[in-house]
Write a protein that binds this DNA or RNA. Structure first.
Ligand SMILES: [Zn+2]
Ligand SMILES: [Zn+2]
Ligand SMILES: [Zn+2]
Ligand SMILES: [Zn+2]
Lengths: 131, 131
DNA sequence: TTACAAAATGTTATATTATAACAATATAAC
DNA sequence: GTTATATTGTTATAATATAACATTTTGTAA
């Protein structure tokens, strides 16, 4: 477990304390006071953080969330629940699900070494608001 | 099953006959000779085609593929295999998988009405190239 | 068949997301 | 200490996507 570089640490801290996924340019805006001025500085740190599994990209939202699951440090098996009303995102940590997907083989004979799953629906809060 | 409008049909035909996922601006370039000149015309057709399940968006690639699975016309339960070497994308049609995921409930009590799953690995061709 | 509503189109401009290219600096390994 | 690797800094630009507004077409029903 390598240490993070300065930019990586700044950006990880921001994402980690955020209650919601952050977008790259929102991150940029927030870290400008700490000396990170250019998009590329943000994207490079994000790439690295994703690579080492400290954060994940929510592909359908182009946003980044800290890993909430100490076990997936390789970032190769990710699952999220996304509320389509309030946009709350939670990382799913369910061993039955991860076992099922990690072991999944399709008829095409392809063996997968990585997956990303995004579930969409309404969170509890948003369901109760509607009733 | 409504008919497609002119622009929707042009763009669907292009995607449907493509052996690989197409990106929006590549689509735009290819349909300019047929009178579609602006990105927004492409994106509007894509949005509609996704909504009615004729095509799907491969989120990790920002690209669009025709539905290869006559049963998922509502576009609410999608799974793909993606070769990280040649970028070949195939829609997975596996009833065991779709049953498992459609029925999946996490401990947060959230009920999902939609999911998207992307598997990554090496396709058969690319595996044999390496050996 | 006319009137109304809904969907689709056309067009210009702009917002958002992401990478190319190149130089400099810091960190780790030998 | 020297070399290799990773990280940073910087400017410019590429790629992806939407806002806003006017017009036209299509479907529906009086
Ligand atoms: Zn994680
Ligand atoms: Zn919600
Ligand atoms: Zn499909
Ligand atoms: Zn391949």
């Amino acid at each position: 477990m390598q240490n993070l570089s300065k930019n990586q640490q700044i950006i990880f801290d921001l994402i980690d304390k955020s209650p919601e996924p952050l977008k790259a340019y929102s991150i940029l805006f927030n870290v400008q006071k700490r000396g990170i001025k250019a998009p590329l500085q943000v994207y490079r740190a994000l790439d690295k953080l994703v690579e080492i599994g400290k954060i994940h990209k929510i592909e359908s939202r182009n946003a980044f969330i800290a890993c909430q699951n100490s076990s997936c440090q390789i970032s190769k098996a990710t699952a999220f629940s996304i509320c389509e009303s309030c946009e709350k995102v939670t990382e799913i940590n369910n061993s039955n699900l991860s076992k099922y997907l990690t072991g999944f083989k399709d008829k095409n004979g392809m063996k997968y070494n990585k997956y990303n799953l995004e579930f969409f629906g309404l969170c509890k809060k948003c369901i109760s608001k509607k009733s």
